[in-house]
Amino acid sequence: MWFGTWLSALCLATLTLGATKQDKQDDSGSTIKSIALRTHTLQQPYLDSDMQSRWYDFGGDAVVRTDAYIRLTSDRPSQTGSLWSKVPLTATNWEIEVEFKIHGKGSLFGDGFAMWLTKTRAQEGPVFGSIDNFEGLGIFFDTYKNNRPGTVFPYVMAMVGDGQTSYDKNTDGKQQEFAGCSARGMRHSAVPSKFRLTYFQDKELRLELQYKKEDDWILCFETFSPPSIPNVAYLGFTSETGELSDNHDIVSISAKNLYQSNPSSTPGSSRKKRPSPRKKRGSWFWTLGKIVLAVIGVGGAYVGYTAWRTNNARRSRF
């Protein structure tokens, strides 16, 4: 009985140790820690007691509803709205998660909205409400198809601006696209629409979307040769409507500074070297099996030795 109790306790402790180790790893196989960036995070009610935001400026036709959203443009023609951080984002590695909503009454709609990380800020222009020939990164959530055969809209694309290259609206930026994906169902989504942009300098740029099911993140694009983003870049959101229109709402912005517990490994290399779950599980059970067999062997030897001593003791009496 003593041996069985000891064996059960050993197995339970070993399983608990394995679960603890798994809980500390993320999907890439390395531990990623984060610190919230208050300067670039925006949540309800958005405004302070002075009816201003300490960290963001609102511009153009943007409307703030403190219990619901920041509406960059309403479902009306010829509107332009913006939301820009007052201080630049200087973190080397970061993650920005945004909840948004695109909706309207019409069956014809446009044009979409954009997220920016650029050297300049709060300048109105023709590219989703911001200036052309920008320097930095633009993520465009384009809902209206101009001339791009074979592409399903809405379409989400990234463009890296060098300060000289112009965005071609007539072809929906086909020649300027760095990476992108179709996102059918993003407009009028039944669940909260979100995107999550993750950046590790010189290592990784990844964009994930949520619009089909809650907590179901779809990889839009991922590259382990990311573009160079300006060291001093302002975070912004802009939108515009033309003859066609839609409501473009920003519900919340969550920004984090990221760092790895093992700086020598990169997200890409960690993901490539990480064994598959099936291999890890097989290796784990094989190791556990060897431990159990060893314990049984030791226990069997102990029981045999005890029986031998008992028999010898009985013989010596006679």
Rank of each mutant, 00 (worst) to 15 (best):
L235K: 01
L37V: 05
Y167A: 10
S182Q: 08
M186P: 04
D162T: 05
E99H: 12
D57W: 10
R121Q: 10
L15K: 09
R121P: 04
S283C: 03
D75P: 04
K279T: 14
P226K: 12
L207A: 00
K24T: 15
T310F: 03
L42F: 08
G300F: 12
D246F: 10
A62F: 07
F113E: 01
Q123D: 13
R315C: 08
R184K: 09
S53A: 05
D75K: 11
S269Q: 11
T66G: 00
K119S: 10
T80S: 12
T31A: 06
A233D: 02
F134Q: 04
T118I: 10
L12Y: 06
R309Y: 03
Y211T: 04
P277N: 08
S82G: 15
P154L: 03
S8W: 04
V298R: 02
K105R: 14
G125F: 04
D246R: 02
D172Q: 00
T39D: 05
N247L: 08
G289R: 03
L258D: 04
V64S: 00
T306G: 01
S53G: 02
Y302L: 05
K212P: 03
Y56M: 14
V232Q: 12
A179R: 15
R187E: 11
R38W: 04
G236Q: 01
Q164H: 15
K33Y: 03
R38Y: 07
G173M: 07
G289E: 03
D246N: 15
T165K: 12
Y259P: 06
N93T: 09
F3Q: 13
P230Y: 13
M115R: 02
V127E: 10
